[in-house]
C-alpha cells in the first residue's frame, strides 16, 4: 500500500500537468482562431483565380502548356508532398498524415524507391528521413511565421520537378480543417493541373481583350494557381493542427481531473485505514493490560 506522502506527491504532479495542458489548450484555441481567419481570408484569391482560369481555358489550347500535360509514358516517379506539423501533443494529427502517406506510397504496388518525397513539417521529416526514401525537398519551422513566400518556394520545386520530367505527377497530402472537432486527411493531385471545368458558370467569357496574348497570361497564371493551392493546403493544415492540439489538450485536462479525483478518493481510503489500524492497536493494547 502506497504511503500517504507518495499519494499526495502524485496528486500534486498530476495537478501541475493539468495546469500545463490547460494553458496549452487556451493557447491553441487563440491560435486556432487566427489560423481560421487566415483560411477564410485566403479564399477570395483562390476563387477569383479559378474564375479567371476558367475564362481563359476556353481561349487557349490546354495541351499547349507543360503544367497541364499528362505525361504519356510516366517514366518519372510521383512526387508526394507531405504536410505534417512541427510539434506534437496534437492527438493523431501527425500519425494520421504519416499513415495516409504510407498507404498512398504503397498504392498500386509501388515500392518506397518508386516515389520521391517533399516533406513539410518536422514530424513528417523525422519519420521519413530515417527510412530509405528519396527526399527531394524538406522544410521545417515554417508554421510559426507562415507566409505566401513559403508556398511559392514549394510550388517552384514541384513545378521544376514536374516540367523536367523527374516527377510524373505531384500530390499533396495534408490535414484539412473540417471543423474544430474533425480533421480529414486529403490526398490532392497538384500537377498536372486537372482539366478545369469549363462548363460551369463560365460567365461572360465572350469578348475579352487580352494584354498580353492569352497564351502569355496563361503561362503566368498557371504557376500562380499552383502557388495558391499550396498556400491553401498550408493554411488548412495549420488551422487543423491547432484544432487537433486544442482537442487533445482538452481531453488531457479532463483526464487529469479524473485521475485527481480517483487518487484523492484512494488517498482518503488509505488515511482512513491507517487511522482505523491505530485505533485498533490502542484498543487491543488497553484490553491486554
Amino acid at each position: 500500500m502506497p504511503s500517504l506522502i507518495d499519494l499526495r506527491r502524485r496528486i500534486r504532479a498530476v495537478k501541475s500537468t493539468q495546469q500545463i495542458t490547460k494553458a496549452m489548450k487556451m493557447i491553441a484555441a487563440s491560435r486556432l482562431k487566427r489560423a481560421q481567419q487566415r483560411v477564410v481570408a485566403a479564399r477570395p484569391y483562390a476563387q477569383r483565380m479559378l474564375r479567371v482560369l476558367n475564362g481563359l481555358v476556353t481561349r487557349v489550347d490546354p495541351d499547349s502548356h507543360p503544367l497541364l500535360r499528362i505525361p504519356e509514358q510516366p517514366d518519372g516517379r510521383p512526387l508526394i508532398v507531405i504536410i505534417s506539423a512541427d510539434r506534437g501533443l496534437c492527438g493523431g494529427f501527425n500519425s494520421n498524415i504519416i499513415k495516409a502517406a504510407g498507404h498512398f506510397i504503397r498504392a498500386d504496388g509501388r515500392k518506397p524507391e518508386d516515389v520521391a518525397l517533399g516533406l513539410i513539417g518536422r514530424k513528417g521529416r523525422e519519420f521519413f528521413r530515417r527510412r530509405a526514401f528519396d527526399v527531394r525537398y524538406e522544410r521545417t519551422g515554417i508554421f510559426q511565421q507562415l507566409a505566401f513566400s513559403h508556398a511559392v518556394d514549394i510550388a517552384e520545386v514541384a513545378i521544376e520537378e514536374f516540367t523536367s520530367g523527374r516527377a510524373s505527377s505531384v500530390h499533396l497530402i495534408y490535414n484539412e480543417f473540417k471543423s474544430v472537432m474533425t480533421q480529414r486527411v486529403v490526398v490532392e493531385p497538384l500537377l498536372p493541373i486537372r482539366r478545369l471545368e469549363d462548363g460551369e458558370e463560365a460567365g461572360p467569357t465572350s469578348d475579352y481583350l487580352y494584354e498580353p496574348e492569352p497564351e502569355e497570361i496563361f503561362k503566368d497564371l498557371l504557376p500562380r494557381h499552383v502557388q495558391a493551392q499550396v498556400y491553401r493546403a498550408l493554411l488548412e493544415s495549420n488551422a487543423a493542427f491547432f484544432a487537433a492540439q486544442m482537442t487533445a489538450m482538452d481531453a488531457a485536462t479532463r483526464n487529469s481531473t479524473e485521475i485527481i479525483e480517483d487518487l484523492t478518493l484512494y488517498m482518503n481510503k488509505v488515511r482512513q485505514a491507517a487511522i482505523t489500524r491505530e485505533i485498533i492497536e490502542v484498543v487491543s493494547g488497553a484490553s491486554a493490560t
Binding site: V52, G55, L56, P204, S206, D207, Y208, L209, Y210, E211, P212, P214, E216, I217, D220
Partner: peptide, 19 residues
C-alpha cells in the same frame, strides 16, 4: 499598372484581362 503600360479604366470598359 499593366505589364505593358498603365491602363486607365472607367465604368463601361470593354472586358479585359491583363497581367
Amino acid at each position: 499598372p499593366g505589364a505593358e503600360g498603365y491602363l486607365g479604366v472607367l465604368p463601361g470598359h470593354t472586358p479585359l484581362l491583363a497581367t
